[in-house]
Design a protein around this nucleic acid. Structure first.
Lengths: 246, 246
DNA sequence: CGTCCGGTTGATTAGACTCAAGCAGAGTGG
DNA sequence: CCACTCTGCTTGAGTCTAATCAACCGGACG
């Protein structure tokens, strides 16, 4: 294992400046955050945090993809969150980590020392309000996922996952409704299975089935082309609006 | 349908005063909340909110049990939250309801007019911080539930639900570990099925199985006695600590 | 060249679903 | 008061979806 690379980047130059927990901060507030933060990189496959670990930082994903997973003693594991750039990691006010956080690709984190961040949170409404908003969004996403896990068939689950990845991964700039979409699959079959509550064999079979049905086109094993998003959403069992609300 | 009963109760006399979103408020802040709130009652079985409805209030459950559910066009439904006294309903900053909220028993709600509440939220850290804390707790609960939905067997699911209800329903005053527990089941078999991603027949069968195995004792169909919580947690596939962290 | 990893595919099995019948208790109306 | 119905629940028989077990493929890498 290589030593983690620690670096420091000015907040103003940060790629997630306008989406992360710091999004609403003015330049004075950014300055305060700047003083308690550091960048840290993790390699693909590496653990960022183990469940039960003492946490000395919270932070944001700057680049890359990480997963939040829960494991039972017998090894069954369930992914409970997919962390993309700007997503927040860690729970202010709690010392022990509740989940495993694993880097799926190479990941850059912007870490805030925990105690000073908690202090800032108390004193800076721009931060606490933004964190509240992000947490409410995550709660909605988790609840959406509960429907997928509890009530959808294997095929619908796969289609749902692909739809989410298509929406987030591909730059869906505007009213998220170009009919075509194309993106890189950053998860292994096993990770997808853990996300969906399936086995990796079932994931593989259903992806093959969707390919055979022409719902998706694969270039290699990881590059996905969706010729018709409407068709994919149909397969996902979603009605057209995809459950997004103002 | 009877007209809703609207009443007003002083915050100081409110049974959820120290657990709800108002928990941290001082008396001045309570006074402000008092001016924008009203109590409202709902009968068992009644809808409190329909998904997609315009929301003109947010609020707290004062007494009773309500459920948060999501429904697909073909009727498949998944419960995504169980609302007990002190739980918060509604999302500040969003006008449309994202879920159905149904009264399972008779329910009393403390409703805050939405716009004024949002204004208070902006100006009152005691409220926004408490709401953040409660939202983080709900997110943890939702993630815990994702493991149940995605990876547990029918029997483990039932045991998990009973364990949750036992912990919350029965007055688990202290270190939540008396070995014995006893509580009233406020959910129908169908509601349990919707919670667990099962059919009601499977719920019925697994409850019978747990009864036959002596894990639980039923008095009538709704009163549950758990002679040994450790045994129940074993059946739930949880290790002894039940996943609670400081 | 052999091995490992991620992925695919096939055969069989098991667990939950579906369809169906029936029970107990509460409420209703003749 | 009794028959009738309704709701919530239980139980059984048969089916089907996804899990399990197993073989195999292809590319990367030492």
């Amino acid at each position: 294992m290589t030593a983690p690379s620690l670096t420091h980047v000015k907040c103003a130059d940060c790629p997630i400046r306008h989406r992360a927990v710091c999004a609403r901060c003015d330049s004075d507030e950014l300055e305060l955050l700047d003083q308690i933060k550091y960048y840290r990189s993790y390699e693909a496959g590496q653990a960022i945090i183990w469940s039960g670990d003492q946490m000395d930082f919270v932070g944001s994903v700057v680049s890359g993809v990480a997963t939040l997973t829960q494991t039972m003693e017998d090894g069954r594991t369930q992914m409970v969150g997919l962390l993309l750039p700007s997503d927040f990691v860690g729970r202010p006010g709690r010392d022990g980590a509740a989940y495993n956080v694993m880097a799926t690709t190479n990941v850059m984190m912007c870490c805030f020392r925990k105690r000073p961040f908690e202090k800032l949170l108390d004193e800076t409404p721009h931060i606490s309000h933004r964190l509240l908003e992000m947490t409410l969004d995550e709660l909605d996403a988790a609840r959406e996922w509960m429907l997928v896990l509890g009530r959808k068939t294997a095929r619908e689950k796969i289609a749902s996952l692909l739809a989410i990845l298509a929406r987030r991964d591909s730059s869906f700039d505007k009213a998220n409704f170009q009919t075509e979409s194309e993106f890189e699959l950053s998860l292994t079959r096993e990770a997808m299975a853990d996300y969906l509550g399936l086995t990796l064999e079932t994931v593989s079979r259903q992806i093959s089935a969707l390919k055979k049905a022409g719902v998706i086109v694969l270039e290699g094993k990881r590059h996905v082309i969706v010729p018709d998003m409407g068709r994919l959403l149909e397969e996902a069992g979603d009605d057209s609006d995809g459950g997004l609300l103002a």
